[in-house]
Structure formats: C-alpha cells, structure tokens
Amino acid sequence: MTPLLSVRNLRKSYGALKVTDDVSLDVASGELHAIIGPNGAGKTTLIHQLSGSLPSDSGTVHLAGEDVTDLPMVARVRRGLARSFQITSILDGFSVLENVALAVQARSGSSFRFFRPAASETALNAEAMDALGRVGLADRAARRAGSLSHGEKRQLELAVALATKARLLLLDEPLAGTGPEESAILVGLMRELKSTHTLVLIEHDMDAVFALADRMSVLVYGRVIASGAPSVVRSDPAVRAAYLGEEEAA
C-alpha cells in the first residue's frame, strides 16, 4: 500500500547551512509519526517544506501517491494536508466559532457569495461546533478567540485543523508553551485524533512523544539519523548520543 505521505531526498540550504539534508520518510495511513530532534535540527523548516509554505531545493513530496512537491500551501490544503502552527496563529478578533467555521467554509462551496450573512449559515456552524466539541471547546464557541487562555488557543488550533477535514495533519509543537494540566488535555486530544487521522507530530515534550507515537524519526542537523518504532529509536546508540543523552544529562 502506498504511504499517505512519502518524502524522498528533500533538501533545503541557506547558503552553506544545510537545514534539511536529504530527508526521506514515509508516513502510513492511520499512524502517528513523530519527528523529534534537538533545537536547530530543522524540524520547523521541514514542516514548512511539507506544508508548502517554503519551497524545497530538491527532492519530492507525495501525498497519497500524488506529487505535491511544486504545489503551494493552499493547493496542498485542498488535497487534504493541513497544518497547525508552533506559534499560535488564530484570528483573535473573530469568535471561536467563526475561526472554525471559516475552515469549514474553505472546503464547502464558493466563498464568492456576497449577500447572505455567513454567521447565520447553520450548516457551517454545525460542522464547526462538531470540531469544537471534539477538542472540548463547545462551551467557548461564542467567545472572542483572543480572550482564550493559551491552552485553549492550542485546542482551537486543533479544531481549525480538524475542520479542514484533512487526511493528514502536521502538528508543529502543539504543546509549546503549555503548562502540565493543559498538556495533559492536549495529549488526550491527540490520542483521540489518532483514531481518525494520520498525524505528523513535531514535539519537544519527550513524555508526550513516547506516549503517542507509533513511529518516529530523529532529526539532527537536518538529517534523519534514526527512524522506527519508539522502542527501537530509544535504544539506538546514535540517537542516545545525539539527543536523548543530552536530555538525560540536562
């Protein structure tokens, strides 16, 4: 079976600095694939390349067998590849519901409609409420998004990604900046998302990664130095030296 996401020999350099150095990886449908690595390993650059917001120097990205290497972000989203952001990126001035309804709107019908008030489109609102319900924000729907707590904003990011009905979600450090309680909620959410979505998770929180990942790749200086099941990666000597060792020492 073709993997849902297939990356081959992806490269990106800034001058002499190889930020992404010959990265190849496969993500099978239904799995949660974690990408870990020390700071500056090139994880976020890789997410940008996968999502299409940054062009690659060379290499290919295939989504469900289709070559999407040269497609811009908008086109990849329409093919079912959505991302969340490391730095919370929601529309603060919109209501929580509207943030999600906008993502529903993007894939249901034309948005060149000029007269009917969008806020009263019950079909959009109902789907948006479903997504909010899944991340546990249903009771916040009418609030202004900017007034949410940091953890709730991260939940809203997930709801927006869900509402795109993507087959593959790229989650860029969804736990960034959250406290232990908020983390626990989000980890629970991602476990739930795993049952319905294929996920690529970039995360610093090792406990979360080992609790969630089916498979993982370790990125160091832009190269994948190990890839496989968490138990295999954990005992890989190169990984211990490059990364986990540092964690334990720290």
Binding site: S53, V77, S89, V160
Partner: peptide, 8 residues
C-alpha cells in the same frame, strides 16, 4: 498565513 493554511 492562517487563511492560506485553511485553504484560502
């Protein structure tokens, strides 16, 4: 950027 990320 958010708008592009949801497909607009």
């Amino acid at each position: 950027v958010r708008m592009q990320a949801i497909g607009f």
